[in-house]
């Protein structure tokens, strides 16, 4: 069967250097916008070819709309986040997907953090959302996209909060 995926792309600029962003990244949780994140663990990590590879396991609560409850039970969702950090090129790429229930809704998210000319950091966030629930796929994907956007705003608010706390003086150009 053909699985249709919806895609979504957002860009966020963090007014912090790439170095500050990647240091703060590992300390993103907890923050006031991330109360849905329950646990966070590093389950694999290595340096290869001068790059840092990490795999982390996160669990989150995942509120769903009433009409979606028939497809979900409300146990915490497990999320695996792989990342590659290249300190020379100053790029940091994260690849995140949910575990289990992927027939209902599978969300693959890729975020690339890179240094901009003015010294700030650009995060390009892309998501691929697919569902195999017959007859409901479009509705579920639309829901997934709305949630992706809302979660993205929440995530950057939370990240900015952590950045401000860790690096109060290093706002780029302001």
């Amino acid at each position: 069967m053909v699985v249709t995926a919806s895609t979504c792309r957002t860009e966020t600029v963090f007014d912090y250097s790439w170095m500050n962003v990647v240091v703060a990244y590992w300390n993103r949780y907890p923050n006031p916008s991330s109360t849905h994140v329950l646990t966070e663990d590093t389950i694999q990590r290595e340096v290869r070819d001068g790059k840092l590879f990490s795999r982390r396991l996160l669990s989150k609560t995942n509120p769903v709309p009433k009409w979606g409850a028939r497809f979900y039970n409300n146990v915490p969702v497990k999320i695996v986040e792989d990342s590659v950090l290249d300190p020379v090129k100053k790029t940091f790429t994260t690849f995140t997907r949910n575990l289990g229930m992927t027939k209902i809704m599978k969300v693959d998210e890729i975020v690339v953090y890179s240094e901009q000319k003015d010294g700030s950091t650009l995060a390009v966030r892309r998501a691929y959302i697919s569902s195999q629930v017959f007859g409901f796929s479009r509705a579920i994907r639309a829901f997934g996209i709305e949630r992706f956007k809302a979660n993205g705003n929440k995530a950057s608010n939370g990240f900015n909060y952590v950045l401000r706390r860790m690096f109060p003086d290093s706002l780029v150009g302001g």
Binding site: D82, V84, F95, L99
Partner: peptide
């Protein structure tokens, strides 16, 4: 009983 089997071997993410 968290099943990590279904995910790809580490870092075969097609990113790099």
């Amino acid at each position: 009983k968290i099943d990590l089997q279904e995910i790809d071997p580490i870092f075969e993410t097609g990113l790099e």
